[in-house]
Protein backbone atom coordinates (compact mmCIF):
# COMPACT_ATOMS: atom_id res chain seq x y z
CA UNK A 1 0.00 0.00 0.00
CA UNK A 2 1.41 3.29 -1.08
CA UNK A 3 -0.73 5.92 0.51
CA UNK A 4 -0.88 7.70 3.77
CA UNK A 5 -3.90 9.67 4.74
CA UNK A 6 -3.60 12.24 7.40
CA UNK A 7 -5.28 15.31 6.14
CA UNK A 8 -8.04 17.72 6.95
CA UNK A 9 -11.50 17.53 5.47
CA UNK A 10 -13.70 20.55 6.02
CA UNK A 11 -15.48 20.01 9.33
CA UNK A 12 -17.99 22.82 8.76
CA UNK A 13 -20.82 20.75 7.32
CA UNK A 14 -24.38 20.44 8.58
CA UNK A 15 -24.87 18.68 11.88
CA UNK A 16 -27.24 19.03 14.75
CA UNK A 17 -24.81 17.88 17.38
CA UNK A 18 -22.02 20.03 18.72
CA UNK A 19 -18.58 20.17 17.15
CA UNK A 20 -17.04 18.40 20.08
CA UNK A 21 -19.50 15.54 19.81
CA UNK A 22 -19.11 14.86 16.12
CA UNK A 23 -15.36 15.22 16.22
CA UNK A 24 -15.32 12.96 19.27
CA UNK A 25 -17.36 10.35 17.42
CA UNK A 26 -15.05 10.62 14.41
CA UNK A 27 -11.96 10.30 16.63
CA UNK A 28 -13.33 7.23 18.37
CA UNK A 29 -14.26 5.55 15.09
CA UNK A 30 -10.79 6.28 13.70
CA UNK A 31 -9.47 3.88 16.36
CA UNK A 32 -11.31 1.05 14.61
CA UNK A 33 -9.28 1.50 11.45
CA UNK A 34 -6.35 -0.86 11.09
CA UNK A 35 -3.15 -0.68 9.09
CA UNK A 36 -3.70 -1.94 5.55
CA UNK A 37 -7.44 -1.24 5.46
CA UNK A 38 -9.41 -0.12 2.44
CA UNK A 39 -12.20 2.05 3.85
CA UNK A 40 -15.38 3.57 2.44
CA UNK A 41 -16.54 6.64 4.34
CA UNK A 42 -20.12 7.85 4.01
CA UNK A 43 -21.21 11.48 3.98
CA UNK A 44 -21.27 13.45 7.26
CA UNK A 45 -19.47 12.33 10.43
CA UNK A 46 -17.87 9.38 8.59
CA UNK A 47 -16.10 11.84 6.27
CA UNK A 48 -14.47 13.47 9.31
CA UNK A 49 -12.93 10.15 10.35
CA UNK A 50 -10.32 10.66 7.61
CA UNK A 51 -8.85 13.50 9.68
CA UNK A 52 -8.06 11.24 12.65
CA UNK A 53 -6.51 8.18 11.04
CA UNK A 54 -3.32 7.68 13.06
CA UNK A 55 -0.15 9.02 11.49
CA UNK A 56 1.97 6.43 9.79
CA UNK A 57 -0.93 4.05 9.22
CA UNK A 58 -1.43 2.89 5.64
CA UNK A 59 -5.09 3.29 4.80
CA UNK A 60 -6.71 3.75 1.39
CA UNK A 61 -10.03 5.55 1.11
CA UNK A 62 -12.48 4.29 -1.50
CA UNK A 63 -14.93 6.69 -3.10
CA UNK A 64 -17.68 4.68 -4.76
CA UNK A 65 -17.90 6.98 -7.78
CA UNK A 66 -14.63 5.43 -8.92
CA UNK A 67 -11.51 6.17 -6.90
CA UNK A 68 -9.16 4.38 -4.53
CA UNK A 69 -6.78 6.74 -2.78
CA UNK A 70 -8.96 9.75 -2.07
CA UNK A 71 -7.02 12.75 -0.77
CA UNK A 72 -8.02 16.00 0.90
CA UNK A 73 -9.90 18.89 -0.67
CA UNK A 74 -7.83 20.75 -3.29
CA UNK A 75 -6.18 24.08 -2.60
CA UNK A 76 -8.23 27.00 -3.81
CA UNK A 77 -7.76 27.42 -7.55
CA UNK A 78 -6.74 23.79 -8.03
CA UNK A 79 -10.26 22.32 -8.20
CA UNK A 80 -10.74 19.81 -11.02
CA UNK A 81 -14.32 19.26 -12.19
CA UNK A 82 -13.42 15.71 -13.27
CA UNK A 83 -12.28 14.80 -9.76
CA UNK A 84 -15.05 14.52 -7.16
CA UNK A 85 -16.07 12.21 -4.34
CA UNK A 86 -19.40 10.43 -3.85
CA UNK A 87 -20.75 13.57 -2.17
CA UNK A 88 -19.93 15.46 -5.39
CA UNK A 89 -17.28 17.53 -3.58
CA UNK A 90 -14.04 18.45 -5.31
CA UNK A 91 -11.18 16.33 -3.95
CA UNK A 92 -7.63 15.28 -4.77
CA UNK A 93 -5.85 11.97 -5.10
CA UNK A 94 -2.94 10.68 -3.04
CA UNK A 95 0.11 9.00 -4.61
CA UNK A 96 -0.73 5.45 -5.68
CA UNK A 97 -4.40 6.13 -6.35
CA UNK A 98 -6.47 4.41 -9.05
CA UNK A 99 -9.59 5.35 -11.02
CA UNK A 100 -12.20 2.85 -12.20
CA UNK A 101 -15.80 2.74 -13.36
CA UNK A 102 -18.92 2.42 -11.23
CA UNK A 103 -19.45 -1.28 -11.99
CA UNK A 104 -15.95 -2.15 -10.79
CA UNK A 105 -16.42 0.11 -7.78
CA UNK A 106 -19.41 -1.86 -6.59
CA UNK A 107 -17.66 -5.05 -7.66
CA UNK A 108 -14.92 -4.43 -5.09
CA UNK A 109 -17.60 -3.59 -2.51
CA UNK A 110 -19.70 -6.67 -3.29
CA UNK A 111 -16.70 -9.01 -3.32
CA UNK A 112 -15.66 -7.67 0.11
CA UNK A 113 -12.33 -6.20 -0.89
CA UNK A 114 -13.29 -3.05 1.00
CA UNK A 115 -12.49 -3.85 4.65
CA UNK A 116 -14.61 -1.31 6.47
CA UNK A 117 -17.65 0.82 5.73
CA UNK A 118 -18.50 3.72 8.00
CA UNK A 119 -21.84 5.40 7.49
CA UNK A 120 -24.56 7.40 9.18
CA UNK A 121 -28.03 6.14 10.09
CA UNK A 122 -31.48 7.33 11.13
CA UNK A 123 -32.23 4.08 12.98
CA UNK A 124 -30.49 0.82 13.84
CA UNK A 125 -32.28 -2.20 15.28
CA UNK A 126 -30.97 -4.62 17.89
CA UNK A 127 -30.42 -7.27 15.20
CA UNK A 128 -28.33 -4.91 13.06
CA UNK A 129 -30.95 -3.69 10.56
CA UNK A 130 -30.28 -0.15 9.35
CA UNK A 131 -32.58 2.58 8.04
CA UNK A 132 -30.90 5.61 6.53
CA UNK A 133 -32.43 6.51 3.17
CA UNK A 134 -36.10 7.34 3.33
CA UNK A 135 -38.59 9.10 5.59
CA UNK A 136 -42.20 8.48 4.50
CA UNK A 137 -43.94 11.75 3.68
CA UNK A 138 -40.71 13.56 2.93
CA UNK A 139 -38.97 14.01 -0.41
CA UNK A 140 -37.07 10.82 -1.11
CA UNK A 141 -33.69 11.47 -2.64
CA UNK A 142 -32.66 7.88 -3.11
CA UNK A 143 -30.42 5.27 -1.60
CA UNK A 144 -27.37 6.02 -3.74
CA UNK A 145 -24.81 3.34 -2.95
CA UNK A 146 -25.92 2.75 0.64
CA UNK A 147 -27.92 -0.44 -0.04
CA UNK A 148 -25.02 -1.99 -1.95
CA UNK A 149 -22.55 -1.06 0.79
CA UNK A 150 -24.58 -2.40 3.70
CA UNK A 151 -25.56 -5.59 1.88
CA UNK A 152 -21.97 -6.54 1.17
CA UNK A 153 -19.53 -4.98 3.62
CA UNK A 154 -17.68 -7.28 6.01
CA UNK A 155 -17.59 -4.69 8.72
CA UNK A 156 -20.04 -1.83 9.07
CA UNK A 157 -19.71 0.85 11.72
CA UNK A 158 -22.53 3.32 12.14
CA UNK A 159 -21.77 6.86 13.28
CA UNK A 160 -24.86 8.58 14.57
CA UNK A 161 -26.59 10.40 17.40
CA UNK A 162 -28.06 8.16 20.07
CA UNK A 163 -31.40 9.98 20.05
CA UNK A 164 -33.17 12.02 17.36
CA UNK A 165 -34.16 15.69 17.54
CA UNK A 166 -37.43 14.74 19.27
CA UNK A 167 -35.42 12.96 21.97
CA UNK A 168 -36.42 9.47 20.78
CA UNK A 169 -33.94 6.62 20.75
CA UNK A 170 -32.46 5.67 17.39
CA UNK A 171 -31.35 2.28 18.76
CA UNK A 172 -34.56 0.29 18.52
CA UNK A 173 -35.99 -3.23 18.85
CA UNK A 174 -37.06 -2.86 15.19
CA UNK A 175 -36.58 -0.03 12.71
CA UNK A 176 -39.73 1.98 12.02
CA UNK A 177 -38.37 3.64 8.89
CA UNK A 178 -37.95 1.83 5.55
CA UNK A 179 -34.87 -0.37 5.70
CA UNK A 180 -31.60 0.11 3.85
CA UNK A 181 -30.29 -3.32 4.77
CA UNK A 182 -30.85 -6.17 7.20
CA UNK A 183 -28.66 -7.74 9.91
CA UNK A 184 -25.57 -5.89 8.75
CA UNK A 185 -24.42 -3.30 11.33
CA UNK A 186 -21.58 -4.57 13.52
CA UNK A 187 -20.76 -1.57 15.68
CA UNK A 188 -22.31 1.79 16.59
CA UNK A 189 -20.54 4.87 17.88
CA UNK A 190 -22.75 7.67 19.23
CA UNK A 191 -22.17 10.78 21.32
CA UNK A 192 -22.97 8.61 24.37
CA UNK A 193 -21.50 5.19 23.76
CA UNK A 194 -19.76 2.50 21.74
CA UNK A 195 -21.92 -0.58 21.21
CA UNK A 196 -21.54 -3.88 19.39
CA UNK A 197 -24.49 -5.49 17.67
CA UNK A 198 -24.62 -9.09 18.93
CA UNK A 199 -27.12 -11.93 18.43
CA UNK A 200 -28.52 -10.99 21.88
CA UNK A 201 -28.87 -7.27 21.14
CA UNK A 202 -26.84 -4.10 21.62
CA UNK A 203 -23.86 -4.72 23.84
CA UNK A 204 -22.48 -1.70 25.66
CA UNK A 205 -18.70 -1.54 25.30
CA UNK A 206 -17.71 2.00 26.28
CA UNK A 207 -19.36 5.18 27.48
CA UNK A 208 -18.47 8.70 26.43
CA UNK A 209 -16.53 10.80 28.94
CA UNK A 210 -18.88 12.00 31.69
CA UNK A 211 -21.82 9.87 30.52
CA UNK A 212 -23.30 7.34 32.96
CA UNK A 213 -24.51 3.85 32.14
CA UNK A 214 -27.99 4.93 33.31
CA UNK A 215 -28.08 7.71 30.76
CA UNK A 216 -27.20 5.22 28.01
CA UNK A 217 -29.86 2.78 29.22
CA UNK A 218 -32.46 5.58 29.14
CA UNK A 219 -31.45 6.57 25.60
CA UNK A 220 -31.57 3.01 24.24
CA UNK A 221 -34.96 1.51 23.37
CA UNK A 222 -33.66 -1.76 21.89
CA UNK A 223 -32.37 -4.60 24.05
CA UNK A 224 -29.17 -3.45 25.76
CA UNK A 225 -26.65 -5.76 27.37
CA UNK A 226 -24.58 -4.21 30.15
CA UNK A 227 -21.99 -6.51 31.67
CA UNK A 228 -19.60 -5.49 34.43
CA UNK A 229 -17.87 -2.13 34.59
CA UNK A 230 -18.22 -0.14 31.39
CA UNK A 231 -15.03 1.79 30.68
CA UNK A 232 -14.91 5.36 29.48
CA UNK A 233 -13.91 5.91 25.85
CA UNK A 234 -10.32 6.93 25.38
CA UNK A 235 -10.14 9.78 22.90
CA UNK A 236 -6.86 11.53 22.26
Amino acid sequence: MLTRCHFQINPFSNFQISMLDKIGIAKRIAKEIKDGYYVNLGIGIPTLVANYIPKGMNVVLQSENGLLGMGPFPFEGEEDSDLINAGKQTITTVPGSAFFDSAMSFGMIRSRKVNLTILGAMEVSENGDIANWKIPGKMVKGMGGAMDLVASAKNIIVAMQHVNKAGESKLLPNCDLPLTGIRCVKKIVTELAVLDVTPEGFKLLERAPGVTVDEIIKATLGRLIVEGDIPEMVID
Partner: peptide, 12 residues
Protein backbone atom coordinates in the same frame (compact mmCIF):
# COMPACT_ATOMS: atom_id res chain seq x y z
CA UNK B 1 -18.94 23.93 -18.92
CA UNK B 2 -18.01 20.96 -16.70
CA UNK B 3 -19.78 22.55 -13.76
CA UNK B 4 -18.74 21.74 -10.21
CA UNK B 5 -21.65 20.81 -7.95
CA UNK B 6 -19.90 21.15 -4.56
CA UNK B 7 -16.79 23.28 -4.68
CA UNK B 8 -14.77 22.29 -1.61
CA UNK B 9 -11.27 23.62 -1.02
CA UNK B 10 -8.71 23.89 1.78
CA UNK B 11 -6.50 26.75 2.83
CA UNK B 12 -2.90 26.83 1.73
Amino acid sequence: EKRIEQRTVRKR
